[in-house]
């Protein structure tokens, strides 16, 4: 029997309060009517209204979303292929190097990855901007997709593929009609994880950006360095809301399809 002792409940509650309080405060203050961010001046959506006119901020948001969409999609393809190679191919030449390259970005400090990629872009002399960030982000987040898809593939019952072939289905078609639909939830979680990571990244984007490609984190960072601003509170609240809606709909979708396991696995991947 499990008994939730007071110590357990207490530590859990304190932990959750610690996690949520700063975010809740941020959200509340984004509705503050006062320009002075520390003085409560009543409820208002004034800062949201001002955001609509902030062309630069909207521009950044649009660039960031496009980069995140592009690199998450590319990383899902690359990460899935890498996971397939790692799980299904057994030993092959260069496996150690391959798995090293896959896992290293998981723990590599972003300053190093960013610096290395920038030096590459300089060495091959391409114009920095949208595409260099997209390439850098794809490289950075592929490993996360690999980890999520790999854990799904490891528990995948390969007799299902054998059954399909036994019933007359050739290998490629088997992959498309049996394997892919069954690992799809992992691909979706992997994509979502990759998308939020790209949305989130400041350091690598700062290194690899160029004129005309100021992502939202870069813009927020440069504003935050100058101090707290109510507009930034509003931007952050919108981002939090978007993520919350995304997570909620994904987990509802997963619950609807597979009893909630896919979303849980995805969340755990973070």
């Amino acid at each position: 029997m499990r008994r939730a002792s007071w110590f357990n409940i207490g530590s859990l509650a304190l932990g959750l309060a610690f996690l949520y309080l700063p975010i809740v405060i941020l959200v509340i203050y984004s509705f503050n009517a006062s320009r002075l961010v520390t003085v409560w001046g009543g409820w208002s959506i004034r800062w949201y209204a001002e955001l609509i006119d902030d062309r630069a901020m909207l521009e950044s948001a649009w660039v960031t979303l496009r980069i995140a969409f592009l690199s998450a999609s590319a990383a899902t393809v690359l990460g899935t292929l890498a996971a397939l190679a790692l799980v299904r191919f057994g030993r092959f030449r260069g496996r150690v190097l391959f798995s090293g390259m896959i896992y290293a970005p998981l723990v590599m400090p972003e300053v190093i990855t960013g610096l290395a990629l920038l030096l590459l872009f300089v060495a091959i002399d391409i114009d920095r901007g949208f595409w260099t960030i997209a390439i850098a982000h794809t490289t950075l987040i592929t490993c996360f997709v690999t980890v999520v898809v790999q854990s799904r593939l490891l528990t995948f019952d390969t007799t299902l593929e054998e059954a399909a072939m036994n019933l007359g289905c050739p290998p490629v078609k088997t992959f498309l009609t049996v394997t892919l639909p069954l690992i799809a939830p992992a691909l979706v979680s992997g994509w979502m994880l990759a998308f939020t990571l790209s949305l989130d990244d400041l350091v690598v984007a700062s290194f690899t950006t160029g004129p005309g490609a100021t992502t939202l984190p870069i813009r927020i960072y440069s504003e935050v360095r100058l101090g707290v601003k109510p507009e930034i509170n509003a931007v952050c609240t919108i981002l939090i809301a978007l993520v919350a809606i995304g997570i909620a709909s994904a987990s509802l979708l997963a619950k609807f399809h597979h009893g909630g396991r896919g979303a849980m696995a995805g969340l755990a991947g973070r």
């Binding site: 019952d157 007799t159 299902l160 054998e162 059954a163 399909a164 072939m165 036994n166 019933l167 007359g168 289905c169 050739p170 290998p171 088997t174 049996v178 639909p181 069954l182």
Partner: peptide, 20 residues
């Protein structure tokens, strides 16, 4: 002959029913 061209079918011990 590859498995998908054999006129032989197998009932798996785990049944291997496609869950989707």
């Amino acid at each position: 002959v590859p498995p998908y061209r054999r006129p032989i079918n197998l009932m798996f011990q785990s049944y291997a029913l496609f869950p989707h």
